[in-house]
Design a protein around this nucleic acid. Structure first.
Length: 580
RNA sequence: CGGGGCGUGGCGCAGUCUGGCUAGCGCGUCUGGUUUGGGACCAGAAGGUCGCAGGUUCGAAUCCUGUCGCCCCGACCA
């Protein structure tokens, strides 16, 4: 492609509103353009990178035995009603009605396709002989994000590879899952991403096992917990915490004292007023577990984890109680709950066990207790791990300190079980003529996020550092002065030769000064730059430079196309190990 | 949904507090010329409903009311 004939609107300055590197660079390099919040046009350069990521995903899915199909993004609302996900998705599901002759048709844009694919399988699969089967598609998904952000990292419309496996047994599911897991590793390796496969919460979608593929990045929305000692890695939502000293509280001599804490309904306000540390306080959170109130005690400097609470209580639904429930249960407004005198079941995080005496809410407006001692002033029904891990907490496997890191989720695999196959009657007959729901797994990759995560993590001060596998073009041909006949004759000849050798070449044929071409070239990050003109040409040489190296080299003009094509080929063959 | 910030030629900004000539600056664009190894220089030119609507005023980019949009923090996120 000749630069003058395509659209690569590079920008010298950072557009207003772009803050994180991927957003800034994708806009500045002319990869994407914004239409509105959460909706971006993929410009020619960005689309090429996206297509490359898509193709890598497709190749590895095919290699893993998955088969591609394409389902409609337009779906009937009834399908979502059958599985109860109209409510589960809520405002995220984009719904609308259209008129068809004399009736209204209620539709939804697919945010994911468990329903559609399961419905499909229920129509065509009826025998164990047809299973296992893994179907996938690469398609635009629609989710009405409450708040799109971070440029292309979180948008309302995005390209997703979604795969669904159907098996006759749990062993089968495990095999299908492992195949996808391995395929994901190959995909992200080929894309040159530094990723971590972490244990993840499978969420209300159901299922018993789940992994997320995370690219570590400071601007990532997710938090993962990682143990450098043994390699344990998990999403913060899911991360277990190692053994904590559940020692009995020291016999405290402090009396239980009621103190006035007017309007201090938060940990921060109380610590300020009483001059104590958050770690000397106990937060008393009133949850509604399957509609029944329960108190959960968490040390003041810790964060409650609803998933852990739900599992500990063996409840199917847990949420913070409504203010009026709290008022009714504690006799106080939100912010002043405490365990002393509470009549509902009391659970506590393990760390609460080791607290000698604590500051707690007094179950009365504008009041707290100092010197509350477990066993004397209140009792805890049961202890469990109910909080988020923190930096330095012990690893659940090896007890080494855990580290918290931000990350971008690029892929997610999980075992679904039979939730959808039961709801939508995707059943098969086994060899004993028994009817069973298919056992499902589902596997997603955010294709746009591959690109955004790559840019986010692989750049320098001058621009993007594409790996060969995702680069919009492999070679940037830069004739320094397009008005010199000799230079352009050579450039055109090289362009033709390289193109015929199946090298993807972008030729900067703009009538611009060298500085402009170099700056733009670095910004868009094409791996190999070939300069024609100037000093080197006088000596019968071309200058070549890898984007990620500081120094340029020269190669003889004679046989240059072959030499460059060889360089490109060898770089293509490398894994990401040597590219950035 | 709560909190904060911002809307002025294609891009980045000043001007708004304290209303007052023809709305400026840098980049980019166009024309002509000189240049050509890290975002050149000279001369000339085009390009604006100051987000939108209403109000106050002799007079509004500027003050008031409403509204739309974008960004950030938080809540939410199968």
């Amino acid at each position: 492609m000749r630069w003058s004939q395509t659209l690569i609107p590079t920008m010298k300055e950072t557009p207003e509103g772009a803050e994180i590197p991927s957003h800034v660079l994708m806009l500045r390099a002319g990869l994407v353009g914004q239409l509105m919040a959460g909706a971006y046009t993929y410009l020619p350069l960005g689309l090429r990178a996206l297509r490359k990521a898509e193709q890598i995903v497709r190749e590895e899915m095919d290699r893993a035995g998955a088969v591609e199909l394409h389902m409609p993004a337009l779906t009937p609302i009834q399908l979502w009603q059958k599985t109860g996900r109209v409510d589960a998705f809520g405002n995220v599901l984009i719904q609308f009605q259209v008129k068809r002759q004399n009736r209204q048709v209620h539709l939804a844009l697919g945010p994911t396709h468990e329903e559609v694919v399961t419905d499909l399988v229920s129509r065509y699969v009826s025998s164990y002989r047809q299973l296992p089967l893994t179907l996938y598609q690469i398609q635009t998904k629609f989710r009405n994000e409450e708040r799109p952000r971070f440029g292309v990292l979180r948008t309302s419309e995005f390209l997703m590879k979604d795969a669904y496996s159907f098996d006759t047994s749990l062993e089968g599911l495990n095999q299908s899952y492992d195949k996808m897991y391995q395929a994901y590793c190959r995909i992200f390796d080929r894309c040159g991403l530094d990723y971590l496969a972490v244990e993840a919460e499978s969420g209300p979608i159901g299922g018993d096992a789940s992994h997320e593929f995370m690219v570590l990045a400071d601007n990532g929305e997710d938090t993962v917990v990682h143990c450098a000692g043994c390699g344990y890695a998990a999403n913060l939502e899911r991360a277990d915490i190692g053994q904590r000293g559940e020692t009995a509280p020291a016999a405290a001599s402090d009396p239980l004292t009621r103190v006035d804490t007017p309007k201090a309904g938060s940990i921060e306000a109380v610590t300020k007023m009483l001059g104590c540390e958050p770690s000397a306080m106990i937060k008393t959170l009133i949850y509604s577990a399957d509609e029944k109130p329960v108190a959960v005690l968490i040390r003041g400097d810790h964060e409650a984890n609803e998933g852990k609470i739900r599992r500990a209580l063996k409840a199917s639904k847990v949420e913070l109680a409504a203010p009026d429930t709290i008022q009714q249960v504690t006799g106080a407004p939100v912010g002043f709950a405490g365990p002393v005198g509470l009549k509902i079941p009391i659970w506590a995080d393990s760390d609460v066990a080791a607290m000698a005496s604590a500051v707690v809410g007094a179950n009365a407006a504008d009041a707290h207790f100092k010197g509350a001692v477990r066993g004397r002033d209140f009792e805890v029904g049961q202890f469990a791990d109910l909080r988020n891990a923190g930096d330095g907490d012990p690893c659940p496997r090896c007890a080494a300190p855990l580290a918290l890191r931000h990350a971008v989720e690029v892929g997610h695999v999980f075992k679904l079980g039979t939730k959808y196959s039961e709801a939508l009657s995707a059943r098969f007959l086994d060899e004993k003529e028994q009817l069973h729901p298919a056992i499902m797994g589902c596997y997603g990759i955010g294709v746009n996020r591959i690109i955004a995560a790559l840019v986010e993590t692989k750049h320098d001060d001058n621009g993007i550092l594409w790996p060969m596998s995702l680069a919009p073009y492999e070679v940037l041909l830069a004739p320094l002065n397009v008005k010199e006949k000799e230079v352009m004759t050579l450039a055109n000849q090289l362009y033709e030769e390289l193109t015929h050798a199946s090298v993807e070449v972008l030729m900067d044929d703009r009538d611009q000064r060298p500085g402009v071409k170099f700056k733009d070239g670095d910004l868009i990050g094409i791996p190999l730059r070939v300069v024609i003109g100037g000093r080197s040409l006088k000596d019968g040489q071309l200058e070549i430079k890898w984007r990620w190296r500081d120094a340029a080299e020269t190669i003889p003009l004679e046989g240059a196309a072959v030499a460059i094509a060889d360089l490109v080929q060898s770089e293509r063959n490398l894994s990401h190990a040597t590219s950035p």
